[in-house]
């Protein structure tokens, strides 16, 4: 969500999702996590947290994170897996997107999530062969799930987005320049050199 915020503030059209089955946050004890369905408003999540030991939630940053998320979007959403019931906000919440898969780029922050997304796209290729075959560039930027890493990781993601965006705009403005797709691997290499502690993954997927 930190990356969502940073990208949105930079002017990109962004949607964010979880890839698991539910939203899991640290609970009062290590064996009692707080589990919420996707679509549960962040305000309700905050209400639940307020009923628990606030010192713990303040100490582990969950309280601040939830408050931050309220300012970004109404509720957490689940990746629109093929053939599964939607667990996301209504389309009217995102008028700038034409449909649920209207993305040019997907960026995940854990390899597990990257695998889920790529497998979902491969599944679409298999189970829905009549699909339109629109390409989407998928990346994973491996970020440790804690507050400080999230802040620096979000900036690194913004760097990647800016590099891609600049190259893409240039290819649209100057039809004789090097094609965008030919630049992507060089952009990734350049980015990885600048961010050696954030291992990257990449794939083109189709839907």
């Amino acid at each position: 969500m930190e990356a969502h915020k940073v990208l949105k503030d930079a002017g990109y059209k962004v949607r964010s999702y979880g890839t698991g089955t539910s939203v899991r946050l640290p609970g009062p004890t290590i064996d009692q996590p707080n589990v919420f369905d996707f679509g549960t408003p962040y305000t309700s999540i905050l209400d639940k947290l307020n009923t628990q030991d606030l010192r713990i939630h303040k100490a582990n940053g969950v309280l601040d994170m939830t408050k931050r998320n309220i300012a970004i979007k109404k509720a957490p959403e689940r990746w629109p897996y093929f053939n599964q019931p939607p667990q996301r906000l209504p389309a009217s919440a995102y008028p700038e997107f034409e449909n649920e898969l209207d993305f040019q780029v997907v960026i995940t922050c854990e390899e597990r999530c990257f695998d889920s997304v790529v497998e979902d796209y491969l599944g679409r290729n298999y189970f829905d062969p009549s699909q339109t075959q629109i390409p989407v560039h998928c990346f994973n930027v491996e970020i440790r799930d804690e507050h400080r890493s999230a802040l620096s990781g979000a900036q690194a993601i913004l760097d990647l987005a800016n590099l891609l965006s600049t190259a893409y705009q240039q290819s649209l403005l100057d039809f004789s320049s090097t094609p965008f797709d030919d630049k992507v691997l060089d952009i990734i290499t350049e980015w990885q050199e600048h961010h050696p502690t954030l291992p990257i993954l990449y794939s083109i997927c189709y839907h």
């Binding site: 390409p135 797709d181 083109i204």
Partner: peptide, 9 residues
Amino acid sequence: TGVFTTIMS
């Protein structure tokens, strides 16, 4: 990678 993944897809 772009070519490889497109063939796989």
